[in-house]
Structure formats: structure tokens, C-alpha cells
Design a binder for these strands. Structure first.
Length: 593
RNA sequence: GUGCAUGUGGCGAAACGGUAUACGCGCCGUCCUGUCAUGACGGUGGGUGUUACUAGCACCCAUGCGGGUUCGAAUCCCGCCGUGCGCACCA
């Protein structure tokens, strides 16, 4: 039986179908009323077809007054367009439909935002009327890209020998990491499920269960605030875990996924992969030194240098005895004083005392506010910094090494954006490896895990027993592309003895491990394979492939930065009865006066 | 929690201490038989009142909300709220 709404989609018809009687259904995309003849662009998911309502049609006037975005089904005959009126920009541009009748399937009221033309609209409106925003070709295409990327990832993972699993969404709260989303239990008053921040423990348990190679396109829930590259509340990871592997094996698997994936969807953008399609590696410490961050944007051709020894005994008190880092910025010489002043303000916002700089003029002479302190060795060294003439050198000095590095790292990106120094249309990947296992909490002076406490320390038990904890590296790694952390993972600590020792160094005794990670530590007692994995962020990968800078633009139904869903009105109050079912009373915060 | 930016018609916006809503988009009306971001002309914030009621006129209100400075505030100041970006946070 014939479909009552359509016999073709709006992207199907070509000149070869001329003469056929057809039915098309879709949205009224645009109208061109020429007085006699009425042209209407009919749009569906697949494309646009021009339909023509002739002056002889009794319903022409009626049709002309249907608002844009009305849903109709039209019947008519396919005919080739007259000579000279073919539209080469439209796949269906050779033909048009001579309409003989129509049905109005869905009316449309006055629109709160334009679907076509796709003009600028505030994000709040776009989120509230997401179903309209999703009709616009930009977002519609991105969501389709997302679908194709995920399909490709799934196919590639299976081809690489991985199996797909599902893991619980209602699980238990885990003590480490971000805040959990909690789900109150009806059957157990006062007890809660938590939504998983990642299927971390489950995937490790699957390895202990002998499944060898796991993957899942997994939703992850974390109660943390949004950023341009981070949605609040929930996001998707390609969660991966492998047994009997080293770090190199995990890298090899992910490289076999990523490089071809990026190449499939953005073939015109070269990557910096080596000839054998592997990615470069950078030690965490090296990255902090050269780029001031553990997610360096390698598209920026600027590196930071350490000048600490040079100023150790300097007359210049602002630098003496502190960690001093510097970077040379080409093209910065000619910037106005206000530009340099602005950067100082930016640096101060990041907690730096300021942002010192000197300029190197056409004669290679040092100028600027602090140039007079740069004498002898330091002047020579600065010229050797690689600073070409007509450039500027920026300094960051702080008693705290990490802070000195991070300030300059942030300024490196900001300056590069302002001066257009970021290389375009290219993907620059790097692995970040050798993360420290522990770090010193400056406030409490306690040694803490710097990343995932389940990571295997490099050197194993021996390192934990004999080495200064702050010098121990973990088999912990990130994959970074164009300044975005797109994956994070580790070789796991699967040996209870090493686990207890690792926690002991961070000040947690055995009972903490036994109670808080009971499920996993118990499993490790019964024959656990060495294993490790990684979790690439799906949303960020799509962002890169779609060339978007706002992560909400690659998600069909995102929440606003404040964690609200403006379309569905979540979160929202629930009834007293629902609360009673789960044994909750509301404790409201004290209102501000 | 916090820093910065921002908030004016359905939408993008203009006015930057002196007649708010210029201009554009959309929408409405009229005209046009080959357009395809159609074109031309006109209209388009809200309320109340009034008249000779397809229309006109008068008055009032409106620049996120509340207060303040000023002869006069969209504009300057204070507080609050919303949104965006950043920081804290993110095993």
C-alpha cells in the first residue's frame, strides 16, 4: 500500500522521473510568490524540492498564506524545469513539482526564531526551541555527522577486535572524583544510587571476568559546571579497556582508531601523525615546561623556556630566586602599549603578580619597562631565546613552579588567538605520558593522588617502597588534539598488595580501600589480569571534526551552562507524594537578603 | 562559590547624558507568470481612552528587576536576576 504522505523524499527526484505523479511531504521552507505562479521550497530531512502552485489552482491563494514551517503533503507531477531556470545549487534543481493538491498535516504558529534564513539567535532561545534549531541545516548536519562518526567508531572498534558491553546506570557513589548525581532509593530509606561518573570499575571487572577487549559508547554523569568544551551533567565517552597490555598496546589500538577516523571525516585536514600513523609522545613534565599546560595546542608555534638559573642571583628582585619562564612572540613588537597592558590584566586575573615583557627592536636592542635589568648574560641569553628582532618576550616568575608555568601557558594561548598565530585546518595530536603518581597538596602539605588512584605506578611495588613518592610516575596518559584533552587513560593497578601500598602513601589505610573499592579489590584477589584502558571523549572528537568551538553545538539536546534543560525544564520540583516515596524532605538553602 | 562580559520589539541591532526602537531580518497587507536569500510599495512595542471606526487622534507605559544621582538615564552609580566566557571544581 502506498504511503499516504509521500512517495519520494525531497531529495529523490531527478529529470529521469519527469512525468511521474508523486507525493512529497515536508516543511514549507521558503516561498516566492510572483503574483501568478507561486514557488515553494519544500524541505525534509533529505533535501529541498521546488514545488509550483499554478495560478489555475483553486487553492493557490490559500497555500500562499500558509506560514513557513507548516508541514504539508503535496501531490503533483514531476516536470523538468524550463530552459534557463535549472538551479545548479540544488540536487533536485533540474525538476519541479506541478502541484495538483495538498494536505496540511501540521500547522505552524508565529515562530520564536527563524529556521530559514539561519540568522544569529541567542543561545537561550535556541536551547528553549531546540527542535527549531535542529531543523536548521547547520545543527542538523552536525547531528548527522555525530551519528556517522559514532557508527564509524563502533564499526572500527569491532574490526579492531573489541566487544561492546553495557554497564549499570544506577550504581553506587564512588568517593573519588567529581560530585555524583544521586538517585534516592524507595526500598531502602536514606540510601542512594549514584549515576556513574564513568563505567570505570565495571570495565575493570569485565577484564577480571576474562573478556579481554571491552568498549562502550558510555554516558558519564558528573555534577560539575560547564565550560565551552565541557557540558554540565552528562557527556559521552568511548570507554575502552584491554587485558594483558602495556601502555604501548593501548596507544597502538587508539592510534589505529583515531588517525583513520579523523582522516575519514576530515580528509582535507592533515594530521601531525608520523609516517607510520602513530602520534608523538610528550612527558607531562616536558609539556608543563614547554607549553605551560598538560593539554598543549601544538598548532601554536611558540615554546616556553626556563630561565630560572639565569635570574637566580639577579639584581631584579621580581625574578630573583623564583621560577622564571619566558616565551618569544613574533609580531608582538608593533602592538600598542594598551595591548601589553591588557595582557598584564589577564595575567593578574589568573593570579600572577603581572606579566613582565621586553621588546626587541629592529637593531636587536632590548626595550621596554624592564629592559634595563637585562644586562650581561641575561641580555645575551634573551637574544638566544630565539626571539627574532621586532618581537616581544614575555616572562612569568613565581615562587611556585607550577603557577609560573600555567600563567605563561594560558597567555601563550590567549596571545596566539589575538595575533592569529594558530595554524589553521590541521589536527595536531600528542600523547601526554609519565604523569606524576602523587602531588603535594600545598594547603595541607599532604601527599595526594594526582590522578586516578587505580593507575599502576611505574616501577611497581619497588618504586612505592624505595622512591620519593613525588618522583614516581604513573602509567597514566592523555591524548591531546589542538589543545583539547580528547582521551584519558591508564594501565591499572591490579595487584592488591600494590594497591594498599599506593593508598598508604596517600595517607589512606587498608580499610579505606576495602570499604570504598570493595567490589574491585575483592575481584583482584581471585586472579586479575594486568589490564589498562582509555576513554576518548565523543563530544570533543565531534567538536574537532565539526570545527565547532562550543560543545553544545554538537549535542542534540544539551543543557545550558548552569545545568538547566531549557527545553524540558529540568531540573524541576516533584510532588510531595514522590518525595515521600523516596523518604526525602527538602532542606532549602537560606535565601539571600 | 567567584572574576569578566552582557541584557533594548518576534530576531540581529542603533541611539552612549538630551525626541528610545534608525537600519536590517522576520511577520502582515497590496501588486507582479519563472523565482530560488524573488522583487516593488505600505504596515508592524504594549496599554487605555476617544471619534466621523477597512482609518485616525490623544494620553499613559515600556531598554532584565529594584533603588539612586541628574532639569533630564537605555546610557552614570548601588543591589538583585538571567545568559555567556573563565577560575575554583573536573578519580
Amino acid at each position: 500500500m502506498l504511503n499516504p504522505y509521500r512517495t519520494y523524499t525531497c531529495n529523490d527526484l531527478r529529470a529521469t522521473q519527469a512525468g511521474e505523479t508523486v507525493r512529497l511531504a515536508g516543511w514549507i521552507h521558503n516561498k516566492r510568490d510572483l503574483g501568478g505562479v507561486l514557488f515553494v521550497d519544500l524541505r525534509d530531512h533529505y533535501g529541498i524540492t521546488q514545488i509550483v502552485i499554478p495560478p489555475t489552482a483553486a487553492f493557490q491563494d490559500e497555500f500562499a498564506h500558509l506560514p513557513k514551517e507548516t508541514v504539508v503533503s503535496v501531490q503533483g507531477q514531476v516536470r523538468p524545469r524550463p530552459e534557463g531556470t535549472v538551479n545548479p545549487n540544488l540536487p533536485t534543481g533540474e525538476i519541479e513539482i506541478d502541484v495538483t493538491g495538498y494536505d496540511k498535516l501540521g500547522g505552524c504558529e508565529s515562530l520564536p526564531m527563524n529556521v530559514f534564513p539561519e540568522d544569529h539567535t541567542p543561545e537561550e532561545t535556541r536551547l528553549k526551541y531546540r527542535f527549531l534549531d535542529l531543523r536548521r541545516s547547520k545543527l542538523h548536519q552536525t547531528v548527522m555527522l555525530r551519528s556517522r562518526v559514532i557508527a564509524s567508531i563502533r564499526r572500527r572498534m569491532i574490526d579492531l577486535g573489541f566487544q561492546e558491553f553495557q554497564t549499570p546506570i544506577l550504581t553506587s557513589s564512588s568517593p573519588e572524583g567529581a560530585r555524583d548525581f544521586l538517585v534516592p532509593s524507595r526500598l531502602y530509606p536514606g540510601e542512594f544510587y549514584a549515576l556513574p561518573q564513568a563505567p570505570q570499575q565495571f570495565k575493570q571487572l569485565l577484564m577480571v571476568s576474562g573478556f579481554d577487549r571491552y568498549f562502550q559508547i558510555a554516558p558519564c554523569f558528573r555534577d560539575e559546571d560547564g565550560r565551552a568544551d565541557r557540558t554540565p551533567g552528562e557527556f559521552y565517552q568511548l570507554d575502552v579497556e584491554m587485558s594483558f597490555v602495556t601502555q604501548d598496546d593501548v596507544f597502538a589500538a587508539i592510534e589505529k582508531l583515531m588517525e583513520p577516523l579523523f582522516n575519514e571525516f576530515k580528509p582535507e585536514w592533515p594530521t601531525n601523525a608520523r609516517p607510520d600513523k602513530t602520534f608523538q609522545r610528550l612527558a607531562y613534565k616536558e609539556s608543563m615546561l614547554r607549553y605551560g599546560t598538560d593539554k598543549p595546542d601544538l598548532r601554536i608555534p611558540v615554546e616556553i623556556k626556563d630561565l630560572t638559573p639565569l635570574f637566580a642571583k639577579s639584581e631584579f628582585k621580581a625574578f630573583a630566586g623564583k621560577t622564571v619562564r619566558a616565551m618569544a612572540i613574533p609580531q608582538a613588537f608593533d602592538q600598542p602599549r594598551s595591548w601589553f597592558d591588557n595582557l598584564q590584566e589577564e595575567a593578574k586575573k589568573l593570579g600572577a603578580p603581572g606579566l613582565a615583557y621586553i621588546k626587541i627592536d629592529a637593531n636587536g636592542e632590548l626595550t621596554g619597562p624592564i629592559a634595563k635589568f637585562m644586562i650581561g648574560d641575561s641580555a645575551t641569553a634573551l637574544k638566544e631565546l630565539g626571539a627574532k628582532q621586532q618581537s616581544a618576550i614575555f616572562f612569568s616568575a613565581d615562587p611556585n613552579e607550577t603557577k609560573a608555568a600555567k600563567v605563561l601557558g594560558a597567555m601563550r594561548v590567549k596571545i596566539a588567538e589575538q595575533l592569529g598565530l594558530i595554524e589553521k585546518d590541521v589536527f595536531k595530536f600528542t600523547w601526554i605520558v609519565d604523569y606524576p603518581m602523587y602531588e603535594m597538596n600545598e594547603e595541607t602539605k599532604q601527599i595526594e593522588f594526582s590522578h586516578n588512584p587505580f593507575s599502576m605506578p611505574q616501577g611497581g611495588l619497588e618504586a612505592l617502597e624505595k622512591q620519593d613518592p613525588l618522583t614516581i610516575h604513573a602509567y597514566q596518559y592523555d591524548l591531546v588534539c589542538n589543545g583539547y584533552e580528547i582521551a584519558s587513560g591508564a594501565i591499572r593497578n591490579h595487584v592488591p598488595e600494590i594497591m594498599y601500598k599506593a593508598f598508604a602513601l596517600a595517607g589512606h589505610d587498608k580499610t579505606v580501600v576495602d570499604t570504598e573499592f570493595a567490589g574491585m579489590i575483592n575481584a583482584f584477589r581471585f586472579g586479575a589480569p594486568p589490564h589498562g584502558g582509555i576513554a576518548p571523549g565523543i563530544d570533543r572528537i565531534i567538536m574537532l571534526l565539526a570545527n565547532e568551538t562550543n560543545i553544545r553545538d554538537v549535542i542534540a539536546f544539551p543543557m545550558a551552562q548552569n545545568g538547566r534543560d531549557l527545553l524540558m525544564n529540568a531540573p524541576s520540583p516533584v510532588s510531595e507524594r514522590q518525595l515521600r516515596d523516596v523518604h526525602l524532605t527538602i532542606r532549602k538553602p537560606v535565601p539571600k537578603v
